[in-house]
């Protein structure tokens, strides 16, 4: 996966709690057998009407958010189905960072396996970012090395991420390759069980 160290991008605010992965990528798009091409279907049922036309009452469709790469949302983001198609769709659409007060575990994990940085900030901080991004074209910088989020107007917040996930994201490492460096231990574990 693509490493992520420091990222500056346009913020898209989605002021909803409990956004589930069925909303991020509806099931009718889960039948593909590759990891690519899911971006066009992200938030499909919100972005398109039943005839498949873009709805202008859904904010992501507004021109001011074109090119966005940082998604800010309410608590428990990514709940529900374990489908990794959700982070694939977000990534393919252009999102590299998600910021929310909390996430569902599986989604959070899935992000880190695909080079999306999931940032946890406090409710108040998230609300500030959402307000800012709703009123104007708003850019943020997310620095994974320093574990900081800031804009150029004085907002600054710190976040935490476990050191293993951080290392993987910073380097863009393949999990399996890392695990296989412990293969002797796996062999040993299996041998002990027999």
């Amino acid at each position: 996966m693509e490493p992520i160290r420091k990222h500056t991008g346009l913020v898209y605010p989605l002021n909803r709690a409990n956004v589930d992965t069925d909303q991020i990528i509806p099931k009718q798009f889960l039948k593909r057998i590759s990891r690519q091409g899911f971006g066009q279907f992200v938030f499909y049922n919100w972005r398109f009407d039943s005839k498949g036309t873009l709805r202008d009452d859904f904010s992501l469709n507004q021109p001011k958010y074109e090119g966005t790469s940082i998604l800010v949302a309410g608590e428990n983001f990514g709940c529900g189905s374990s489908r990794e198609h959700a982070p694939w769709a977000l990534l393919d659409y252009g999102f590299r960072v998600v910021i929310a007060p909390s996430y569902a575990d599986i989604f959070y994990n899935n992000c880190t396996k695909n080079g999306i940085l999931p940032v946890i900030l406090s409710d108040d901080e998230v609300q500030t970012l959402i307000k800012n991004a709703e009123t104007e074209q708003y850019y943020l910088t997310v620095d994974l090395e320093a574990k900081k989020v800031y804009d150029n107007k004085g907002f600054e917040a710190t976040f935490d991420l476990d050191s293993y996930k951080r290392e993987m994201l910073l380097n863009g490492w393949d999990d399996i390759a890392v695990t296989l460096t412990h293969v002797d231990k796996i062999d040993q574990f299996e041998a002990n069980r027999k």
């Binding site: 189905s81 990794e84 599986i106 999990d175 399996i176 695990t179 293969v183």
Partner: peptide, 30 residues
């Protein structure tokens, strides 16, 4: 690779859902 894997916990098993990258990881490394 399914969130309702928790079902199997009824038997006193530690059972949980994983994403596709993790499916690949388990296939390769158990």
């Amino acid at each position: 690779g399914d969130s309702h894997t928790s079902t199997h916990g009824a038997f006193g098993a530690l059972a949980f859902g994983i994403g596709t990258s993790e499916v690949e990881h388990v296939l390769a490394t158990q």
